[in-house]
């Protein structure tokens, strides 16, 4: 019998939601657990085994020196490393500190900041180690996670569409919330994957899957501006869960002046 591939799941600074997606695969998780050796998945098992691992899945961003060091050890022990979610791929909502003074942030939350150790920035894993694949979303879509795991275990490229939410929305047959109602919507610049959820629930996309490839947000910003969005609204729109993704970061800064 050939040994089963060894899978590890890691958590850095995050809300747990992306790794929870794995446990939310209620119909598939036991089958998946039969196909792989779950060598390290602390949220699910106290049987934590040493590496090396064939595939490491990483949730969360780097916000402490200890985690920056830990991710290097994880990388060294992993043949392939995939990051999942907005925290791991763009720094997450906690990357809002990158636009502020972290000392100020600490003093707001903690009476004795000296007990707390943190970095001035929240950064994606790819800024620290080589990443083999990034799966976007806040949270990720669990079907896409299953596809990525299957692909890596079978040595093929994941079939994850790279177009915009806008395309998904049209395919779903939604009435465009921007055109019909003038609602601000990041759908034209946002990476597909959610299935155009927000417009299907009568609201504009808020960009939780981060920028698509070559998003050209300046053109969208002009449209939103013409429909009543002020500069502060635009800064806030781009500065959420993927605030640290370069295209959104640049666009938010452009409207800050």
């Amino acid at each position: 019998m050939t040994p089963r591939p060894r899978l590890a799941v890691w958590k850095l600074a995050s809300c747990d939601g992306c790794q929870l997606s794995l446990l939310d695969l209620e119909d598939e998780i036991l089958t998946l657990a039969g196909e792989v050796e779950l060598a390290y998945f602390l949220e699910a098992s106290s049987d934590a085994r040493e590496g090396p691992y064939d595939l490491s899945i990483v949730e969360g961003s780097i916000t402490t020196a200890a985690d920056a060091e830990r991710i290097r050890r994880v990388r060294a022990a992993s043949r392939r490393l995939v990051t999942i979610g907005a925290c791991a791929t763009a720094g997450g909502i906690q990357a809002l500190r990158n636009f502020a003074d972290v000392e100020d942030f600490m003093s707001v939350v903690y009476a004795s900041p000296e007990y707390v150790s943190t970095l001035a920035t929240s950064t994606p894993v790819s800024e620290h180690v080589k990443v083999d694949y990034e799966l976007h979303g806040c949270p990720i879509d669990r079907r896409q996670l299953l596809e990525v795991i299957s692909a890596f275990l079978n040595e093929r490229r994941p079939a994850i569409p790279s177009h915009s939410v806008c395309m998904e929305c049209k395919r779903r047959g939604n009435v465009c919330v921007m055109v019909a109602h003038g609602t601000a919507c990041l759908g034209p610049v946002t990476h597909a994957g959610c299935g155009a959820l927000c417009p299907s629930y009568d609201r504009g996309c808020y960009g939780c899957f981060g920028p698509m490839e070559d998003p050209q947000p300046d053109s969208l910003s002009r449209w939103m501006g013409a429909h009543g969005a002020g500069e502060l609204d635009l800064v806030r729109a781009y500065r959420t869960y993927n605030a640290g993704a370069p295209a959104f970061r640049e666009e938010s800064i452009a409207h800050e002046r």
Binding site: L12, A13, T63, T64, A66, D67, G92, I93, Q94, L96, R97, A100, V102, D104, F105, M106, V108, V109, Y110, V116, T118, S122
Partner: peptide
């Protein structure tokens, strides 16, 4: 030791 994310600050 979960790293802090400073929600109460970033909401301001």
């Amino acid at each position: 030791y979960e790293p802090p994310r400073f929600f109460e600050a970033l909401l301001r």
